[in-house]
């Protein structure tokens, strides 16, 4: 089993470091390129949400992201100490709405739910914990 943990600040500039980390892990763990792009998308959407809405009081916070590869299943865990927010409680956006009525809100979470095989949310020790898995397509 392989494991990697990174901590990023609640700043958008950290997204670049996150992307680089995923790319490096992809090479080390032999993950397909498209798989890595999907992981990048899922993490960008989650981290962006946390940065924008998680800390109404402001201040510097750390977001922990853990990557764990067990044979052909990758587990992602995202932990933040922002306000309680269960992304799974959000309703799916209306994907059939016309251009005029289309809203972008909620699309990010929809990506997370569609791309990952499983998504589980816990609130523990005043922290949001999101545990997701995705099988690495061979």
């Amino acid at each position: 089993m392989e494991k990697h943990l990174i901590e990023i600040k609640n700043q958008l500039t950290e997204l670049e470091r996150l992307a680089t980390t995923i790319e490096t892990l992809g090479e080390q763990w032999n993950l397909p390129m498209n798989f890595c792009l999907s992981l990048n998308l899922v993490l960008e959407e989650l981290v962006t949400n946390i940065i924008f809405y998680g800390f109404p009081q402001g201040g510097e916070h750390l977001i922990q992201i853990e990557f764990m590869l067990d044979k052909t299943t990758l587990q992602l865990t995202v932990i933040d100490d922002g306000i309680a927010f269960n992304p799974l409680s959000k309703e799916d956006p209306d994907l059939k709405a016309s251009v005029e009525d289309r809203a972008i809100g909620g699309l990010g979470i929809h990506f997370v739910k569609t791309i990952m095989d499983s998504v589980r949310y816990e609130r523990s020790n005043k922290k949001n914990v999101l545990i997701m898995t995705k099988s690495v397509a061979v």
Partner: peptide, 20 residues
């Protein structure tokens, strides 16, 4: 184009609205 997130899609939607 190698990668796009929902922020990028928002811009595509904005362009479509403006063109219409």
């Amino acid at each position: 184009l190698e990668y796009i997130s929902s922020s990028g899609l928002r811009v595509f939607l904005m362009i479509q609205k403006k063109m219409m």
